[in-house]
């Protein structure tokens, strides 16, 4: 390799490195993810080694929890609507404004429809596998079990619908962030670890340290997984059930309001490229 070759490769290295450094949000999100991941691993090991303290969930409950979480994985706001990300990339995002419709509702409906379309088939298949196939195969111990009462199942249904609306609200916010930053990378990098961890998908929220339990139950992502799961397991009753549903509704209202405000401001400042 001649020195001139070396200059070319060094130059390519430097250019790519500078471009990569520009994704500050992604770098920050990466670090935050790794910290959370590490903390969760530590907690799992601590439970494994310590072992004896009274577990907040029984093993069968945890098993059902895990299957529901896996079955409703599509409920997570995985990121900005890919169509919108494309439109941002091509500069066509403002074209949604050509329609005589309110852009927030337009995006919200699209997000909700997309989540539902991904959720339904996956949830049904998962229920078939974990709830029917596993018991038939003699693995009842590892299967998804039905909620203890019909009322719990009904509340679970309501809570899942609220979770879907909540997820759509968050998706619209991610769309707005994508329009603002002109790239879906930052928003998507932040939301994925955040929602997987804070919804209880990685580890049931009940297994987190007692000190943060209240905080964890109040934050919006609980409504995407943990709260519906608790309804399924039948651990929420009376005022607690009402409070859990109210928590979900409150976040939907707050995120709708905030999302509409953010969208309005973003569209006002939208600077479409082009001559």
């Amino acid at each position: 390799m001649t020195p001139a070759d070396l200059t070319a490769y060094l130059s390519a290295f430097r250019a790519r490195w500078q471009v990569t450094l520009q994704y500050r949000a992604a770098a920050l999100a990466g670090v935050v993810t790794q910290i959370w991941w590490g903390a969760i691993n530590l907690m799992v090991y601590a439970a494994f080694y310590g072992g004896t303290s009274a577990a907040p969930l029984t093993l069968p409950q945890t098993i059902s929890y895990v299957w529901i979480m896996q079955g409703t994985l599509a409920l997570m706001p995985w990121g900005c609507d890919p169509d919108i990300a494309d439109a941002v990339r091509s500069g066509a995002v403002a074209h949604d404004l050509l329609r005589p419709v309110d852009p927030w509702w337009w995006w919200f409906c699209r997000a909700a429809a997309r989540i539902l379309g991904r959720l339904l088939p996956r949830a049904v298949l998962m229920a078939g596998f974990a709830g029917v196939l596993l018991p038939l195969a003699g693995l009842d111990r590892w299967a998804l079990h039905l909620p203890p009462r019909v009322a719990d199942a009904a509340l679970f249904g309501v809570s899942i619908v609220l979770g879907l609306l909540l997820s759509a609200c968050i998706t619209v916010l991610l769309n707005v962030a994508t329009v603002r930053t002109l790239s879906p990378l930052g928003a998507n990098a932040v939301i994925t670890p955040l929602s997987l961890i804070l919804s209880g998908n990685m580890l049931p929220l009940a297994l987190f340290p007692a000190a943060v339990q209240h905080l964890l139950l109040l934050q919006p992502f609980a409504g995407l997984g943990d709260l519906p799961c608790r309804f399924w397991l039948g651990t929420l009753h009376g005022p607690w059930a009402a409070a859990a549903l109210a928590q979900q509704v409150a976040w939907i209202v707050a995120l709708t309001w905030g999302g509409r405000l953010a969208l309005r401001r973003t569209l006002c400042q939208l600077e479409v490229q082009g001559g």
Partner: peptide, 18 residues
């Protein structure tokens, strides 16, 4: 010509740009 401002004018007339 390209970059003259006609797309901007069109976008303003279409209501998608202020």
């Amino acid at each position: 010509p390209n970059g003259a401002g006609k797309s901007t004018a069109i976008k303003i007339l279409s209501g998608i740009l202020r």
